[in-house]
Amino acid sequence: MIEDFKLHSHTAPAEPLISIVVPVYNEEDSVGHFAAAIRTVIAESWPTGETAPRFEIVFVDDGSCDATAAIVRAMCRVDRTIRLISLSRNFGKEAALSAGLRAATGDAVIPMDVDLQDPPELIRPMIDKWQAGAQIVNAKRIDRLQDSFLKRTTSRMFYKTINALAEHPIAVDVGDFRLLDRAAVAVLNEMTERCRFNKGLFSWIGFRTETVEYARPARQAGSTKWGVSRLVALALDGITASTTFPLRVWTMVGAIISLAAFAYAAFLIAYTIISGADTPGYASIMVAVLFLGGLNLFSVGLMGEYVGRIAVQVRGRPLYVVAETVGF
């Protein structure tokens, strides 16, 4: 059955090499379906007689606990276009994708999800736009009907928030699924951020960009690994990696409140001197103390998010650790 995963490959040096980078975590039920789907789509997209690009699939196993790595390892033995990078533990999708981008050798690289919600049928249109001159080809979702109401709502809020704050807005409803020219990949590989938010990096580097649109299908196998806590962590990474505007906001808020406090203190002093009466008001004092205390705690927590990421960066530890490579 492993032979079904084999891809048609070409060796003519004039044909461009396309690297498909696929981070996987506990996806033993999905990797075979993915490889077979890619093989079928390539055969259908470039009919007999038409010169097709060469392809390689780079699976990045992000510390899976199941048989994902073993299955991909077996696929590598019968198909020299399939490669495996196994990380020593679970480092997260952003790190796994970075590992795949660094290992990919293609003239263009296409990151994809293994669940086939990134339609392989878009590979040909993306490559056509790339060969026409685009250096980045984004795949934009035109609907989110497969997502729950909560996920659609929070996604819209996330994009609106980050694009209102970010110095370089990210493309709305565009995930990691896109085509990246070798020049773009080379720039990404030079970046040293430890708290990676790849969507922000993709928008920051610039380059000539085109877009293809698609409706995202349902997941073909397995289950999503993105829980609420991981999505919140990714959102925080995205905001802190894209802008320092929240820090500037709280600087301005602090300045305004300080000026108001000084003005009110001057008023109390003047009132006491003129009227000679103390101003009672336990409730108003408590409200002021709690309000200012809450602002202080919130602003300290916000600064802590940035300081924590500075600490991670200063330590200089590797973004990921590779335990094994197969097929390279």
Rank of each mutant, 00 (worst) to 15 (best):
F267H: 13
F262P: 00
V72S: 07
D176A: 10
I127A: 03
V22N: 00
D173K: 02
T279M: 11
L268W: 05
L150C: 07
E213V: 03
P23Q: 07
G106Q: 00
A265K: 04
S9C: 10
L234H: 03
I20S: 00
Q146D: 12
R39S: 15
I82S: 02
S86E: 15
S229L: 11
D79H: 08
P246Q: 09
I42G: 05
C195V: 13
A233P: 01
E305L: 15
S45T: 08
I142Q: 04
A70R: 13
Q135T: 02
A265C: 10
R152F: 06
V174L: 08
I239W: 08
G133K: 06
A35Q: 09
S30I: 09
P125C: 09
A52M: 10
W130F: 13
A108C: 15
C65F: 09
A69T: 01
Y159S: 06
G293M: 12
Q146N: 13
I162T: 06
F328Y: 10
F298L: 15
N198R: 04
K6Q: 13
V21P: 00
T211M: 12
L302A: 10
L290T: 07
V312P: 02
R124C: 07
V228L: 15
P13Q: 04
L180N: 01
A266S: 13
P111Y: 00
V187C: 04
F158Y: 15
I71C: 06
E56M: 02
D113T: 02
E15N: 13
M75F: 14
R73P: 01
V307Y: 14
I269C: 12
V322N: 08
A108H: 02
